[in-house]
């Protein structure tokens, strides 16, 4: 059994858990940055920028996000190739869309046709991260936009009375205080992000779902030293348990973070903490 669980393919399975964690580690800050940018844009006094922020937030509503995942990967890929095509092959005269084919010159192919396997895999992963960040950025933007509006008006007025400029108010008053209002929404989003990682499989990345299907399928003695029947059910049970543990740990950690962020805030929670301490 120990030998079976340490075959090369199982090692790939364990590494793919790393892929999932890596995806989370890259996507979460990136989506937060996207969301922060969009929320700030939606509050901007410059009309086109405000429209951009509001449309970006609004567009992700009402549509199943799995459709976005399938859409963005092809769309982003084609957009990159289109831009490279325009830059690198200016004297190309054939149309790019020929019926149902998308044709760009060889120099504009992404990744290059002769690139190594790992470049292709990394590029696929990169597209997946970008897609996740775009979709979850919109959700984060919605949460942060609400949080910015939840900061008590009196705090902002006090800052104005001290003669701060709008930019100073934003940096010193609004941003430090909004997190406590944003955290419930953001922690919810984090849970959702964890639970959406299996969608990597749909984006063509060799993730845990891929390996679980691959390894669990029935094996005959001809191809492997460890023949077995259809074990996919057990592999997916293991994945289920992995995700359950992961969400449970996240819940506990986020709860602690909430306690810390509430410290010294002008909210009921902060007031309760102050009373306990006093």
């Amino acid at each position: 059994m120990a030998c079976y669980l340490t075959t090369a393919k199982h090692m790939a399975l364990y590494w793919s858990f790393g892929t999932v964690l890596l995806l989370l580690a890259i996507t979460a800050p990136l989506a937060l940055a996207f969301g922060f940018g969009a929320a700030a844009a939606a509050r901007s006094r410059f009309l086109p920028l405000r429209w951009f922020g509001q449309i970006y937030i609004a567009i992700v509503r009402g549509v199943p996000d799995i459709a976005f995942f399938l859409f963005f990967v092809i769309a982003l890929d084609q957009a990159f190739e289109y831009i490279r095509h325009k830059v690198k092959c200016p004297d190309w005269d054939q149309p790019i869309r020929q019926g149902s084919d998308f044709v760009v010159c060889a120099a504009a192919k992404l990744p290059m046709g002769n690139a190594a396997q790992w470049v292709h895999e990394t590029y696929g992963f990169f597209l997946a991260v970008l897609t996740f960040a775009i979709v979850f950025g919109a959700f984060a933007a919605n949460v942060l936009f609400g949080a910015m509006r939840a900061v008590p008006r009196a705090q902002m007025e006090t800052a104005e009375a001290y003669g701060m400029t709008p930019r100073q108010i934003f940096r010193r008053i609004l941003v430090p205080q909004m997190w406590v209002y944003a955290l419930p929404g953001l922690s919810n989003l984090w849970m959702v992000l964890i639970k959406s990682t299996p969608l990597l499989f749909l984006l063509g990345v060799e993730d845990i779902v891929y390996w679980a299907r691959e390894l669990g399928g029935s094996k005959t003695p001809r191809f492997t030293d460890y023949p077995h029947g259809d074990w996919r059910m057990w592999y997916f049970l293991a994945l289920l348990v992995f995700y359950l543990c992961f969400t449970r740990v996240s819940e506990v950690v986020l709860e602690r973070l909430m306690v810390r962020l509430t410290h010294g805030q002008a909210t009921l929670g902060g007031e309760a903490q102050r009373k306990v301490a006093a």
Partner: peptide, 22 residues
């Protein structure tokens, strides 16, 4: 509630399908 809210629906589908298969 924890079992179904704590795990991805995607994995639940996979698991259910293979469980029913067996």
């Amino acid at each position: 509630i924890f079992l179904f809210r704590g795990s991805p629906l995607f994995i639940q589908f996979f698991f259910a399908y293979f469980a029913f298969q067996s």
